[in-house]
């Protein structure tokens, strides 16, 4: 479904991605793990068209998208929940969700999806008319994921959804990621530092070091790999 072929991305002179190649199949949960500054967020931003790769190609269902603008990429069905959530602080919870459905016109479908995300995260319903900026970190993460779901993505990119959250909420977030994948067959590309939990719900995983993929295997094999255990699982 999504294929990155040897992409190189720069911030000015900083060579952040040094030839990333990976592929994601329809319906999979794929996780990308790596240390701080390894290039995980840059990989997602290169897919979304925010930081354009200088060389290499990004193919979505066989079609090159690395030359497209971010809004065209969203239109094709690739949505991202960026690191740090990026809730619109002065829009209400409801308006934030409406922004997620910005490209849609089907009123009935939109209100059905609103009900769906409220069933996933009931707390959001009670906060409906509050400004997004007033929510707690965990609630903001739920809102950010809900907002992305409102676009009905075919491929959902999640950047560290568990960052800064309490263990109980992290557990809940991972369960819902699995649920979205099961119920809607939404393909998920999950960037995480929380390697243990990410690998438990993922089908396959990629390890990124210094802007390049250093390892790639099924999730089970990575979980039992001694190098991965030492570097990312704290075992």
């Amino acid at each position: 479904m999504l294929e990155l072929n040897d992409i190189h991305t720069y911030y000015g002179n900083i060579h952040a991605l040094k030839g990333i190649s990976l592929n994601i199949n329809e319906g999979e949960i794929i996780t990308l793990i790596g240390a701080n500054g390894a290039g995980k967020s840059t990989t997602l931003m290169s897919i979304s068209g925010i930081t354009k790769p200088k060389t290499g190609e990004v193919l979505f269902r066989g079609e090159p998208i690395h030359g497209k603008s971010p809004d065209e990429i969203v239109r094709m069905g690739i949505c991202q929940v960026p690191e740090g959530r990026h809730i619109f602080p002065q829009l209400t919870v409801q308006e934030n969700l409406d922004m997620g459905a910005f490209l849609r016109n089907d009123k009935a479908g939109i209100s059905r999806d609103i009900d769906y995300v409220f069933s996933l995260f009931p707390i959001l319903k009670t906060r409906r008319n509050q400004p997004g900026g007033n929510l707690s970190g965990g609630e903001q993460q739920m809102l950010a994921m809900s907002r992305a779901l409102m676009a009905h993505p075919k491929l959902l990119l999640l950047d560290e959804p568990s960052m800064g959250l309490a263990p109980l909420i992290i557990q809940q977030i991972f369960e819902i990621i699995k649920k979205i994948n099961d119920e809607h067959n939404t393909t998920i590309f999950l960037v995480e530092q929380n390697a243990n939990q990410a690998l438990q719900i993922a089908d396959r995983g990629y390890v990124i070091e210094n802007g390049a993929v250093s390892m790639h295997d099924s999730a089970d094999k990575l979980l039992s790999n001694p190098d991965v255990q030492k570097a990312y699982l704290g075992i």
Binding site: G49, S69, P82, L91, F102, R147
Partner: peptide
């Protein structure tokens, strides 16, 4: 209006506006 909402979103967080499909 749609463009009005897009303007508010863009002024609050331009990158996120792009990620929701707004042509900034």
């Amino acid at each position: 209006t749609r463009i009005g909402k897009a303007m508010r979103a863009t002024s609050q967080d331009r990158m996120m506006a792009m990620l929701t499909g707004i042509n900034v």
